[in-house]
Amino acid sequence: MAIQHLSGGRLLRAQRGMSYWGWLLVIAVFGFGLTVVSKLGPAYIDAHFVEEGLHSLSQNSGIREMSNTEIKRELDRYFTINNVRGEPTQAVKIIRGADSTLVSINYELRQPLFHNVDVVMKFDKQLNTAKPELCCEPLVDIEQFRRRED
């Protein structure tokens, strides 16, 4: 009965579906999303494996007795297995304190997105042996240590 109340032309227009411009917009938004994910995704996957590497290092009970070279070798082994390359592997800093060891992986990546548009991503992961349960959240500002060294 509701069909009789609507004019025939109006009913057909309501059932036509999306127009050419509507489909073009959907494809453009999908393409943009796919481009962003394909460009930025690998950096976030590497950051995930950096965090997992620090978690696995925090499970090691003898980390305080390990030398800096041994800690870096352990992380490098984990990064090699999980295909983490580039900036995360070079950004490993180890700071020894009186009662703890701080392993910091703090780096910044610049990824070109389009012609002259870049995306800058910052990652800061830390393992403090005094608080291994808080692994991977930055607890210490590494910049303070760098300023003191200069």
Rank of each mutant, 00 (worst) to 15 (best):
T80L: 14
D150I: 04
H48F: 13
F145A: 07
S61L: 08
G17E: 03
V140F: 13
A47S: 09
S38E: 04
S100Y: 14
R96V: 12
P132V: 14
R148E: 08
E149N: 14
S100W: 13
V103F: 02
P112Q: 03
S104T: 15
Y107P: 10
D150S: 07
F114N: 02
R73D: 01
L12Y: 03
S19H: 00
E74W: 04
L54G: 06
I63D: 03
L134S: 12
G8Q: 08
V50E: 07
H5L: 06
R13W: 07
R77C: 01
V120T: 15
F30H: 02
S19D: 00
L75T: 07
Q144C: 09
K39A: 00
D141P: 15
R96Q: 11
A14E: 12
H115D: 15
K125I: 10
V92P: 07
L75K: 04
S61F: 13
W21E: 08
S61H: 11
T35N: 02
E149Y: 10
G97N: 02
T69H: 06
L40R: 01
S61E: 11
F145M: 01
L11K: 07
E70G: 00
V26E: 01
E70F: 01
L127V: 09
L40G: 03
M121H: 15
A130H: 02
N82G: 14
D150H: 14
V103N: 02
R96Y: 09
S104C: 04
Q59P: 05
G62N: 13
N68Q: 14
D124W: 05
P42W: 11
F32I: 08
I63T: 14
H55V: 04
K125R: 08
F32Y: 10
Q90P: 13
I105N: 07
E137N: 15
V120E: 07
R16W: 11
P112T: 00
K122Q: 14
F49W: 13
A130R: 09
R16N: 13
P88G: 08
F79V: 15
A14T: 10
E65V: 08
K72R: 04
D118T: 01
D76W: 14
P112S: 04
R148M: 05
L57W: 00
L12S: 04
I142C: 12
L25Q: 09
G62I: 13
D118E: 01
I63H: 12
C135Y: 02
R13V: 12
I95P: 10
T89E: 07
V84I: 12
T129W: 09
A98L: 01
V84W: 10
I71V: 06
L102A: 00
L57N: 02
V29F: 08
I27R: 11
E65T: 12
T89S: 11
